[in-house]
C-alpha cells in the first residue's frame, strides 16, 4: 500500500487518472473505518488534504462554490445565514471531532442514503462539479446520487465542488435518531418554503435507496406531509421499520412546514 499526497488539484487529477484504483481520502471519517477494520486494503490512497483548491467556499456572482473539502464545522460556522438547513444538518453530524474532519465531498463520495449533507443540498438544487482527464462536468445532485452508496463519479474523476444558488427560502433540517449526537439518521428531512417560486421542496434521507427531492405548489401544503411519506421507499432494518420511517417523515414534514411558515 502507498499514499500519494498531491499539492495541487492538477497534480491530484493527474495521479487519480494515472493510478488505477487510487482511493481518495479527505477527512477520512469514512475511509479510515474501512482501513482500521481491514474491510478494504486499497493499493494506493490519494490524500487530498494538501490540495488548497478543494478547501473552503467562495461566492461567485450569486452562487456559492463549496469546495469538496469543506468541513461540517465550517458549514456550521460560516453558512448559517446563506444555507441554514445545511448548517443545521452539519451540526447533527457525529460529534465535534467528526465535524472538524468530515467533509461535504466525502459525504457525496460515500453517497449513503443517510448522508446528512445530501437532503439540504437537494432542497437547494445543488450541482456537483467533477473533474477528470476529459475536463470538468457539472451535474445535478439528483443525478449524481444513483443508488445506495453509489454515485456517478468515474474511476478517474474527483469531486471538486458543489455549486448552490442560495434560494433565500425559509428552510430547516430535522433528523430522528436515538440521541442527538453520534447517530446515523433513522429518518431525516430538509424542507424549504420557497415563496419566490411558489413551491415547497423537501428531501428525505434514510428512507429510500437515495435521498430524494419532493416538490409541491405552495397551496398544496396541507397534503404535503402525506405526499413526502408516500414518495419515500423505506425498508426495515436494525435502526427502524419502514412503517416507522414513513410515519416519522409525515411528522417531520408537518413540523418543518410549521417552522418555515412564519
Amino acid at each position: 500500500m502507498d499514499v500519494l499526497t498531491p499539492r495541487t488539484l492538477d497534480e491530484a487529477l493527474r495521479l487519480r487518472a494515472e493510478t488505477a484504483d487510487a482511493w481518495p481520502i479527505q477527512g477520512g471519517t469514512d475511509v479510515m473505518v474501512e482501513l482500521n477494520f481491514d474491510r478494504a486494503r486499497p493499493r494506493v490512497v490519494l490524500n487530498l488534504n494538501e490540495v488548497a483548491e478543494l478547501r473552503g467556499f467562495a461566492r461567485e456572482n450569486g452562487t456559492l462554490r463549496l469546495g469538496a473539502g469543506l468541513t461540517y464545522t465550517e458549514c456550521r460556522r460560516e453558512l448559517g445565514e446563506t444555507l441554514p438547513a445545511l448548517a443545521e444538518a452539519a451540526r447533527t453530524v457525529g460529534s465535534p471531532q467528526i465535524q472538524n474532519r468530515g467533509t461535504i465531498g466525502g459525504n457525496l463520495g460515500t453517497a449513503s442514503p443517510a448522508g446528512d449533507a445530501l437532503p439540504p443540498l437537494l432542497v437547494e438544487e445543488a450541482e456537483v462539479e467533477l473533474a477528470g482527464p476529459a475536463g470538468r462536468r457539472t451535474l445535478p445532485l439528483e443525478e449524481f446520487l444513483v443508488g445506495p452508496k453509489q454515485n456517478a463519479l468515474a474511476e478517474d474523476e474527483l469531486i471538486v465542488a458543489v455549486h448552490v444558488r442560495p434560494s433565500g427560502a425559509r428552510q430547516t433540517f430535522m433528523k430522528v435518531g436515538p440521541r442527538n449526537a453520534m447517530v446515523i439518521a433513522v429518518a431525516s428531512l430538509a424542507l424549504a418554503v420557497d415563496r419566490e417560486r411558489g413551491e415547497i421542496r423537501a428531501a428525505y434521507g434514510s428512507a429510500g435507496p437515495v435521498p430524494r427531492l419532493v416538490r409541491a405548489p405552495l397551496d398544496e401544503a396541507d397534503g404535503f406531509p402525506d405526499r413526502v411519506a408516500e414518495a419515500a421507499s423505506p425498508i426495515d432494518d436494525v435502526r427502524g421499520t419502514a412503517a416507522y420511517r414513513r410515519h416519522a417523515l409525515r411528522v417531520l414534514t408537518a413540523r418543518a412546514l410549521e417552522r418555515c411558515a412564519a
Partner: peptide, 12 residues
C-alpha cells in the same frame, strides 16, 4: 483542531 487520531491517516 480537535480530531479523533484513529480517523487520521498517519501519512496525513
Amino acid at each position: 483542531t480537535l480530531v479523533c487520531a484513529c480517523l487520521v491517516l498517519a501519512a496525513q
